[in-house]
Write a protein that binds this DNA or RNA. Sequence first.
DNA 1: GTGGTCTAGACCACA
DNA 2: GTGGTCTAGACCACT
Lengths: 133, 133, 133, 133
Amino acid sequence: MNFDIAPAAATPIYRQIVDQVRRLAASGQLAPGAELPSVRAVAQQHAINPMTVSKAYSLLEAEGLLQRRRGLGMVLAEAATPAAAGDKAALLRPALAGAARMAKQLGLSDAEAQALFQACLQDPSSKAPYEHD
Amino acid sequence: MNFDIAPAAATPIYRQIVDQVRRLAASGQLAPGAELPSVRAVAQQHAINPMTVSKAYSLLEAEGLLQRRRGLGMVLAEAATPAAAGDKAALLRPALAGAARMAKQLGLSDAEAQALFQACLQDPSSKAPYEHD
Amino acid sequence: MNFDIAPAAATPIYRQIVDQVRRLAASGQLAPGAELPSVRAVAQQHAINPMTVSKAYSLLEAEGLLQRRRGLGMVLAEAATPAAAGDKAALLRPALAGAARMAKQLGLSDAEAQALFQACLQDPSSKAPYEHD
Amino acid sequence: MNFDIAPAAATPIYRQIVDQVRRLAASGQLAPGAELPSVRAVAQQHAINPMTVSKAYSLLEAEGLLQRRRGLGMVLAEAATPAAAGDKAALLRPALAGAARMAKQLGLSDAEAQALFQACLQDPSSKAPYEHD
DNA sequence: GTGGTCTAGACCACA
DNA sequence: GTGGTCTAGACCACT
């Protein structure tokens, strides 16, 4: 399991992790009982502070999404079943709504905006949103 | 000219202004030479501090998008044609790319994501993205 | 007589005028009794506010360098004889001293700095110093 | 690392900092990855407001010359090689070009101007340029 | 510890 | 009228 982290992005690192776990859990790509990479492993891999990863995990634990298994690290909580389509939509909508407002301000037609989105869906490269210059 | 400001959003106010001017300039809705509302006017209208508005304008000036007409106010730079102000697509793509990655992590199909985006384009309500809790 | 005015520069317009008249008078390029261009002419030629030109002339009058001849406009005061070389140097030194400090911070040798200055002396084009981005 | 700040000069403090960092980066005296003194440290050392320092750093970040290491401080951007930071000559030329035009207006010969510049290079004392009266 | 953001208010300078 | 600059102090967020 790899997190997709952009240290220079505007969204704080701990939040990038939290949001990603939420989404992976909602989609079922992370199954109940599945182990998460250790704090140290994540920290080392992305050259970030272990405290940052730990903070993210702690938040997810407080939320009930993760469980601490002694000596084993964190695993996805058994109760964390994949979400219904509606719930998934709720996690995605804010981002899309923001993009939609931007498209309007840019004077793009709905068709143009959708074409651009389609391109992004097919090409998963490119950077994170809201980066500071 | 009115800015669309959400004081409670996670994105700082000054940045909301900066981003909006960029998009309005790129779309041509703000023509080169056009006057921007005065710092004091914007501040009063949205009940925010003049310095916050001033900060946004200063950044845009440093960026070359705005020019100071001394003692008169700020105008959109003559050189800031919609083309020069940056591709519309370039201003929108980061947000869409981020949303696309989220959709993948949620296990949504491209069609599902597109449908949700379509809904957002037609319903301009809803909140700003990336709000902190 | 033409003033060399850069409306976008950091130094205020009125001060650009004041300093220029001082230098032209010190050098003798503007002789005692010589007429200065009218406020309206300068304002129109450079698309600046007549009040700005007027302010500059008033300051120079208060300084004794200009005299108001009724119906004739401003003329250089009879008492304004060309300055000695030492005085001219005094008007130029601050600018050169600032440039010298910059050269040091840039790690340029004296020879390199002088070569660059020599180039500037021979090519009178290029922009004003201290422009805001 | 110490900044050279003149609180009484006409050039605003934040701009003195910005310009100095630019020059130190261009000269290589500040290497990519090097840490800058903290906002609070600079503020305390020169008895100025932290926001003033912060403003300078923010501008330099927007410019791409500095990068924020969250929670740690600012470092010179990795991409900011002396070359990329802008030609040394480009940073010095505007000041020299302005001085050259002044010299012409003063009726000084190139040799006289050069001699005066030479003196300034050897005597690093003297005041900042463009002080308002 | 770090920087970011905003406020409130002051004073200046320019046109 | 306009924006620019700085201060003092608050609170937040990240590491």
